[in-house]
């Protein structure tokens, strides 16, 4: 696992609320055997018309999308299906963080395991970001702080163990395996 300490990028917006993982990766792409290249399916049905041509004003088709690794999205991002294909596709496309006012539980868990940072901010901060699409934002996982180029900043919450694993490049599976003695003890006591 790669260590993630801090990064900065311009933002790009998808302001819809309650974006579900069926939009992020439609079900017919769930048969892909691996994670590589799955970014091509990201928001497929919102991104391409029925002939497979890019829909010009969709945010991923704007030239800015190539440069931006921070997505500012509407409330309750990632609801619905548990498919981890959703964060895989966002990461494969090049996103490092999603900023919203809230995230669905499973999506948030899945993202943290793939180095995609779900950042929950206040409505006020959220509005500032939405109103200033393209603004440069710096994210610091050590101090759990987010700061815009205009100096507006806030801290954000993150589950402490996930944060520890991300900044140290530690794989959670390795940690669980290191608890082998405890697991065996539990099993024997049943």
């Amino acid at each position: 696992m790669e260590k993630i300490l801090k990064f900065s990028s311009s933002t790009i917006n998808l302001a819809n609320e309650d974006i579900d993982t069926d939009q992020i990766v439609p079900a017919r792409f769930l048969t892909l055997p691996s994670k590589e290249g799955i970014g091509d399916c990201l928001f497929y049905d919102w991104r391409f018309d029925k002939f497979g041509n890019p829909i010009e004003d969709f945010f991923l088709n704007k030239p800015e999308a190539k440069k931006s690794s921070i997505l500012v999205a509407g409330n309750n991002f990632g609801c619905g299906s548990s498919r981890e294909h959703a964060p895989w596709a966002l990461v494969d496309f090049g996103f490092k963080a999603i900023i919203s006012t809230s995230f669905a539980d499973i999506f948030k868990n899945n993202s943290l395991k793939n180095g995609l940072i779900p950042i929950t901010v206040s409505e006020d901060m959220h509005k500032t970001l939405l109103d200033n699409e393209g603004i440069e934002v710096a994210v610091d996982l050590e101090s759990l702080k987010l700061e815009t180029e205009t100096g507006k900043s806030c801290s954000f919450p993150m589950e402490s163990f996930s944060r520890y694993c991300l900044i140290n490049g530690i794989d959670q599976l390795g940690y669980i395996i290191s608890q082998e003695l405890e697991i065996t003890k539990y099993e024997n006591a049943q």
Partner: peptide, 10 residues
Amino acid sequence: FGIGTTEVAH
């Protein structure tokens, strides 16, 4: 409850 694929591996 539902989990993601990485957790399935766990």
